[in-house]
């Protein structure tokens, strides 16, 4: 007889045999104490060490669904999430789960770069400090350096770590925020339109960074740019009016979508 652990383990592969990091089952989201049904029963297996993008017109629910994964919707009054979301088989909505610890495991990068009004060093060191990830000043310095290196910004800031994070350019600030997310040693990184406030050059640098980061992390990105989804992700989900219309390999979604609604959206018929 299989143990519960075995069953959990056996369900951690998707249909293509890849490791599944985040498993979502029948997820619903209601706003305004049930007045609005924003997400309607979504099932999805999100792959480990891959980039998954969510696309769809404004108001389709893609950001709402993203925010379910790290329980950001908990902070919204009147918002209710039902169903099951698990990371490595562990229920994210388990009442005994420490949400602060959960958010250490799930980093998040927002649309507008939001560095703390502190030094570059302190921006990165903040997470490791509050989560007790460093036992000494040297260890903390090492985490800061390696995070900035992995985010591809080390060479630009190494001589001015004491300067304010808010004094960097938009693209640098966003990479600083990615470095800050990495510093807490997360397993999943959520990105909510991370390049929409950046110019094309900075966007290209961040996209290259995302490509490098996927070797280590499960990355989920919400984007309004279909070209960006096509460039950076391996899997793409198309959302419409709270439903997941189609979820598949990015190449298939953009060259040969199965659903007419997907075809209509990617060819600009609505959205």
């Amino acid at each position: 007889m299989s143990s519960i652990a075995d069953i959990a383990k056996s369900s951690q592969l998707d249909v293509d045999g890849h490791d599944v990091k985040v498993e979502c089952r029948d997820v619903h989201v209601y706003y305004g104490n049930g007045a609005a049904h924003a997400i309607k029963g979504i099932d999805m297996n999100i792959r480990e060490k891959a980039v998954t993008s969510f696309i769809g017109p404004s108001g389709c629910g893609k950001s709402t669904f993203l925010r379910c994964i790290n329980r950001m919707n908990d902070t919204i009054d009147g918002c209710e999430v039902t169903g099951n979301i698990s990371i490595d088989g562990e229920n994210v909505y388990d009442k005994t789960l420490d949400v602060v610890q959960l958010r250490r495991r799930i980093g998040m990068v927002f649309q507008k770069p939001n560095p703390f009004p502190k030094s570059i060093f302190d921006n990165i060191a903040y997470g490791p400090r509050i989560h007790g990830l460093a036992n000494s000043k040297d260890e903390l310095t090492e985490i800061v350096e390696s995070s900035l290196k992995r985010a591809g910004i080390w060479n630009e800031v190494k001589d001015r770590l004491d300067a304010s994070g808010t004094g960097l350019s938009g693209g640098q600030q966003q990479r600083l925020c990615i470095a800050r997310a990495i510093a807490a040693d997360p397993e999943v990184i959520l990105m909510d339109e991370p390049c929409s406030a950046l110019d094309p050059i900075a966007t290209g640098i961040v996209e290259e960074l995302i490509e490098e980061l996927r070797e280590k992390y499960c990355i989920i990105i919400v984007t309004h740019s279909m070209q960006q989804a096509a460039r950076v992700s391996q899997k793409t989900g198309f959302f419409h009016l709270g439903d997941l219309i189609e979820f598949g390999d990015t190449e298939q979604i953009f060259t040969n979508p199965v659903e007419q609604k997907t075809q209509d959206y990617i060819s600009g018929r609505y959205g």
């Binding site: 279909m226 070209q227 096509a230 953009f254 060259t255 040969n256 979508p257 997907t262 075809q263 990617i266 060819s267």
Partner: peptide, 9 residues
């Protein structure tokens, strides 16, 4: 225009 899907094909 960066056509996609059937349009691209």
């Amino acid at each position: 225009r960066q056509p996609l899907g059937r349009n691209l094909r």
